[in-house]
Design a protein around this nucleic acid. Structure first.
Lengths: 139, 139
DNA sequence: GTCGCACATTAGACACCATCCAAATCAGGG
DNA sequence: CCCTGATTTGGATGGTGTCTAATGTGCGAC
C-alpha cells in the first residue's frame, strides 16, 4: 500500500497525516468498508480526523482510479481498494459478507449488438448472491 | 398489469385505491422509477396518497417477488416491475438512463467452484455501463 | 531553515432517502 | 350493514452523504 502513497505523491498529492491514515485503513484483499467504517478505523489511529475528510479522501481516491465504489449493499456505498485487478463480487444474502471473485469469460462479450440499444458499452459490474458457509451452518 | 392485481388478490391482498394506483404506475417495459417518482405519479392519480404508503406497497411488492429493487443509481433505489422475465441492466453513465437487456450465456456458469469460497450461489446481477446515443451526440 | 500561499482539514449545518409510529380509516367477510 | 383487523396517514426519526466558512498545514521557493 506504500506503493499507493508513492503513486499519489507522484501525481502531486499533498501528503497529510489524514490521507496516510485513510490509505492504511484501505489495505488488503477482500476489504469492502463503508465510508463510516473507514472513518471509525481512521479515528482509532488519528483521533482528530473528521468525517468530511474521510469522504473527501475517498472521493479523490475513486476519481484517481485507486479505489472502487461498490454498491453491493443497498444502504451505504462500500470502497474496494483492489482496483488494479479487475474482479467481481460474491455477497452473502444473509450476513452481507463480501468476497472478491474472478470469473471465467468476459460478460461484456455476452451482450449482443442487438441488445445494446446504440449504447457504447465500456464496463460491466457483476454481483453474485448466495449464502456463505457460516450462515449455511447457522441455518 | 391487471394480471398482477388478480394475482395479488388471490394471495389475500386487500384491494385498496392506493395499491391499485401504485400497481398502475409500475406498468411497462424499461420502467425503473425511484420510490419518489412512483409517489409523484401516484399523487397525480390519487392526490391524498402518502409517501409512507408508497414505500409500504413497494416493499410488499418486492417481498412478493412481483417487483425488483435495482441499485443502478447510487442515490435512490429503483423499482423494476419486469420481475418475471430475468434480465440485466444497461445504464448510461452520463444521464442515468436504464434499459433492460437479455445477454447470451449464463454468468452463473462462469464462476468456477474454486472461486465460490463455499458459498451456495443462487443469483447473479449484472450491470453494464456505457454512454447512451443521446449523450454521445451531445458530447 | 523559514516563508507564503494554495491546498487540506474541520465542525457542524444541511439535504436526501428511507423507515417507524400512533392514530384514524377502510375493505370485505359474516 | 356492522365489525375487526389490515391499511393508510402525516409527521417524527435515523442513516448516509454533501456543503461551507473558518482554520490549519505541506512543501516549493528562496
Amino acid at each position: 500500500m506504500s506503493d499507493l502513497l508513492e503513486r499519489l505523491r507522484g501525481r502531486g498529492w499533498r501528503m497529510t497525516a489524514q490521507r496516510r491514515v485513510v490509505a492504511e485503513v484501505l489495505d488488503g484483499e477482500h476489504v469492502h468498508l463503508t465510508a463510516d467504517e473507514v472513518h471509525t478505523r481512521a479515528v482509532a489511529k488519528l483521533p482528530e480526523i473528521s468525517r468530511a475528510t474521510v469522504y473527501n479522501t475517498l472521493g479523490e481516491l475513486v476519481s484517481l482510479g485507486e479505489v472502487l465504489e461498490v454498491a453491493t449493499d443497498k444502504r451505504a456505498k462500500r470502497y474496494d481498494p483492489n482496483a488494479h485487478r479487475p474482479h467481481h463480487h460474491l455477497v452473502c444474502a444473509q450476513c452481507g459478507a463480501i468476497r472478491d471473485v474472478h470469473p471465467d469469460g468476459n460478460p461484456l462479450a455476452d451482450l449482443p449488438d442487438s441488445e445494446r440499444f446504440g449504447f457504447t458499452v465500456s464496463d460491466v459490474e457483476v454481483t453474485y448472491r448466495g449464502i456463505c458457509p457460516t450462515c449455511a451452518v447457522a441455518a
